[in-house]
């Protein structure tokens, strides 16, 4: 953990309520916050030089019935990559958009809405399709989505006379 990160985390700790922290690499920090703090945290780190929102990702914690939103922001001066994370309710996934802080989040939010079904209030475009065209099922990257069943239902499978899938197991 280098000095810049230490100072940054100390600074953030003094201002916001930190729920958890993790340091996957020397120049990376992953900080968990309550979901109500996310906007002020992002606005603050942006003023501290984290000008780029590299990506908005999402993790499906199905056992906890929660989605985790991960905002990865990058500082071009110090080279620090900061993950700002929060957890939201899975049964009614709703969050407020961050497009007023990072305008580029517009497309990431569409992405997350498409693959996880999280709704972003305040982003009028978040309902439009981006990658999946004419998708007709539940969001495909949720853990309870059965990819094999969908594939079998929608795409015809080639029938073989012999069952080759068992052949490898016998020896």
């Amino acid at each position: 953990m280098n000095k810049d990160i230490k100072n940054l985390v100390a600074d953030i700790k003094s201002r916001f309520e930190l729920v958890g922290e993790d340091y996957p690499k020397d120049d990376q920090a992953a900080l968990d916050f309550n979901s109500r703090d996310i906007h002020s945290v992002l606005a603050y780190v942006k003023s501290q030089g984290f000008r780029q929102l590299s990506i908005l990702s999402c993790v499906d914690w199905i056992k906890d019935n929660q989605f985790q939103l991960v905002y990865i922001v990058f500082n071009w001066e110090t080279g620090i990559r900061l993950q700002v994370r929060t957890r939201i309710d899975r049964s009614n996934p709703k969050f407020t958009t961050v497009t007023s802080i990072y305008p580029g989040a517009k497309y990431y939010e569409r992405d997350v809405h498409e693959f996880f079904g999280v709704e972003f209030e305040g982003n009028p475009d978040s309902y439009k399709q981006l990658f999946l065209e004419n998708w007709d099922d539940m969001p495909p990257l949720r853990k309870d989505f059965d990819s094999k069943a969908y594939s079998d239902r929608k795409y015809p499978v080639r029938e073989y006379a012999a069952d080759f899938s068992k052949a490898g197991d016998k020896k």
Partner: peptide, 19 residues
């Protein structure tokens, strides 16, 4: 393109192109 290959169970990749 024949039967889906290693993507046989993917939701995004078709299985048989000859269809």
């Amino acid at each position: 393109t024949l039967n889906g290959g290693i993507y046989y169970d993917s939701h995004a990749v078709i299985n048989r192109l000859d269809q």
